[in-house]
Design a protein around this nucleic acid. Sequence first.
RNA 1: CGGGAAGUAGCGCAGCUUGGUAGCGCGCCACGUUCGGGACGUGGAGGCCGGGGGUUCAAGUCCCCCCUUCCCGACCA
Length: 478
Amino acid sequence: MSKDRLPSQEDDFPAWYQAVVRDAGMAENGMAKGTMIIKPHGYAVWEFIQSALDSRFKATGHENVYFPLFIPEKLLHKEAEHVEGFSPELAVVTVGGGEVLEEPLVVRPTSETIIWNTYANWIQSYRDLPLLYNQWCNVVRWEKRSRLFLRTTEFLWQEGHTAHASRDEAWEETVRMLEVYREVSEDVLAIPVLTGRKSESERFPGAVETLPIEGLMRDKKALQCGTSHFLGQNFAKAYDVTFLNEAGEQDHPWATSWGFSTRMIGGTIMAHGDDKGLRLPPAVAPVQVVIVPIYRSDDERGGVLVAADKAKAALSGNGIRVRIDDRDQHRPGFKFSEWELKGVPIRIEIGPRDVEADQVVAVSRLDGSKQTLSSGRVIANMSKMLDDIQKGLFEDAKAFRAANTHEATDYDTLKAGIAAEGGFWVGAWCGDAACEQKVSSETSATIRVLPLEPTDPGAPCAVCGKAGVDRATWAKAY
RNA sequence: CGGGAAGUAGCGCAGCUUGGUAGCGCGCCACGUUCGGGACGUGGAGGCCGGGGGUUCAAGUCCCCCCUUCCCGACCA
């Protein structure tokens, strides 16, 4: 059987499933378990995500680098917590060139270890700092269970690794990159996210603080969409990285790391999809406007296609990604449905009536609304429509999140609410890991995010009733 | 690694209880009619029924073993 799907969707949102399998990507049989092939439509979405992130990295002074895929096992073992965290999910190469290797090579699950091992040679003086590097690569994590896009054995991402002379500077960087992720999620992918910090149990292995952005999917489960870690001096110490500071003393640099992955192709699908299929935000839609010509005879066909070409040229000239669907083997109704399935933000219909009246019909994927536009007004209206759809998707998702965010005042409410309603449950937490553990074992929901700075919740812990010291957001998550 | 389920045409499935010529829908190819919300007709191509062993005159179907995949958990971006 080869049913590769995003979670829940075949039951809850059949059209998403179809769209994903046909166009956005799917894993194939006979290959390594949990690996994924991304088809052109899905990969194009990833390219827009990449470019949105990369331009922001450059704007904040970062440069791209590349480090090796293979990490000698010994290297990995220098940071104790890090190894403990990643060991269970490592892919290890033991044979190379037909011979058993003296030392096994680990396929990177993330690159802190190999990068900090190298930084030891690159950092001597405070003048060498900061190091603001990022790499685009693939990583492998042998998860017990994979889900299309959201948790694949191999995935593509970017990982930033920075080194700083002071704690404050590193912390600022951590928060800055969290903000970059928030911006890309919200402004580009139209997914509203909560920002904050993780509880100790949810932290990245080896991190002092882990700052996530958390989105809510249409099935009311949370998705960690990106993470920025404050690593303190842990990796610098483990890899013996020192520098001479301005005061002339030896010191360890302060580190951050942050990542954003192809998981977000899935996040975009799951945050916006509806019963007709995908709804892609215009900013990442490979095709923003599809023109469907309508005709009966060859005569009509000629006139309609001329008008379609003209509209396409005008829109393309304005930087809009346009495609004409002039396939003869399908009728218009079929094409309408198919492009809706693929999530194209705007459909333009041009038929004989429109040619005659020198107009087009434009239909929004946001809500299916239709409007007739004179040919001269198409360009101005298209840009605005695309903007409106981008904002509309964000507003839809925000309204959905608001409708699915609840207050948890006591444990009964929290437990019953998570089971019955799903969504985000916000309430006071005493900060005790035992309470956190109790919730996760009894409801399978976890604390997704805490405020960046501990906030007096002004209420007793929603789990145990002791004094609350933090305001937590619980949810079931992917 | 536990608990469920499934492997039959490119995809989705029926057939198995009660063994007897390999089926359906979609898709694909050809021709014709259609074309402003997933068209229809006619004709056609396409199968080691997951693999191995057994029972039988005869196995997709019954028995044994193996493999793979999916779902629910534990683990995780």
